[in-house]
């Protein structure tokens, strides 16, 4: 069950101009959390900002009873959050929402992150690796895993987690919008490239795409997945108030009407979503 708890800040460091990594202590959250879930953070005491801010679980470490967030300072809330000192306590609600569903039977796992969408992919990649290795133990002839991670960023400065992701993935492909690092272009183009060049029609059926990032990118990924008939899960963002399904504030249109990003999602099957 999710809880609201004061969690101690263990690590809080800038990892780029506006990016921060924040590790917090909580047995309840760390032992329950699943990749793709998020927490609602009270960025500062008082009424400015009033509402909590949703941030994905970037890493989940049940052994050490910690979890880590990766966030970008984009406004008042995240700006104040960045001031939280090591040793201080932050008011956290979580873990919330429905995360990624990992099917270890799938051979190829394609993780696609655009911008801060890379944040939840770290926890996901680690879990995919664990599950795949478990699934492969009795029968070693299945070559352990095909874990491709594609990350897209505006420019070189904004590329996050490349090294950490490389440690778990078979291959990490980076692209930047301006070409200042890695491939030039959109991460969705890289995805199409990989599918066309590395996957046969048969292997598409045993593949799965997980993506998180800005809405236009998710739309492009969903289109590719539909066209290539690859299972696809997308993690969405929407403005939130309660974070627990009570206020009906975080609606997203699906083929069966409005669903709540905070409760039914943030991860949805791409085929269930209606993109405008």
């Amino acid at each position: 069950m999710p809880i609201q708890e004061k969690c101690r800040v263990l690590v809080h460091q800038p990892i780029g101009p506006r990016f921060y990594q924040l590790t917090l202590l909580s047995r309840d959250i760390a032992t329950q959390a699943q990749p793709g879930q998020f927490v609602e953070v009270k960025c500062a005491d008082g009424y400015v900002p009033l509402l909590r801010r949703p941030i994905s679980l970037h890493r989940i470490d049940p052994q050490n009873e910690t979890f880590t967030l990766l966030y970008e300072v984009v406004g008042q809330g995240t700006e104040l959050l960045a001031k939280a000192a090591v040793g201080a306590e932050l008011d956290i609600l979580g873990p919330l929402g429905t995360g990624f569903k990992i099917d270890p039977a799938k051979k190829t796992h394609l993780l696609v992150g655009g911008g801060m969408g890379v944040a939840p992919l770290m926890a996901l990649a680690e879990e995919v690796k664990i599950q795949k290795s478990k699934a492969c133990l009795p029968d070693r002839q299945v070559k352990s895993l095909d874990l491709f991670i594609l990350i897209g960023a505006r420019n070189k400065e904004c590329v996050q987690c490349e090294g950490e992701l490389k440690a778990v993935a078979d291959q990490v492909i980076v692209s930047t919008d301006d070409g200042s690092y890695g491939q030039k272009g959109f991460v969705s183009d890289q995805l199409l490239d990989i599918i066309n060049n590395r996957l046969s029609v048969v292997s598409c059926q045993s593949s799965v795409i997980y993506a998180c990032g800005p809405r236009p990118m998710l739309k492009a990924v969903a289109q590719i997945a539909a066209q290539k008939q690859i299972d696809c899960q997308l993690s969405l963002e929407e403005r939130m108030a309660c974070g627990i399904g009570a206020c009906k504030g975080c609606a997203v249109l699906t083929t069966s009407g409005y669903k709540m990003v905070c409760k039914d999602g943030p991860v949805f099957n791409a085929s269930d979503l209606v993109f405008s």
């Binding site: 009424y47 400015v48 900002p49 009033l50 509402l51 929407e238 403005r239 939130m240 108030a241 206020c247 009906k248 504030g249 975080c250 609606a251 997203v252 249109l253 009407g257 409005y258």
Partner: peptide
Amino acid sequence: REGNPPPRIVETPSGMLNSI
């Protein structure tokens, strides 16, 4: 009732607007 199209929430100084 389906409710209104998103976004349905925006934060304002010491408050929030909703259009659920």
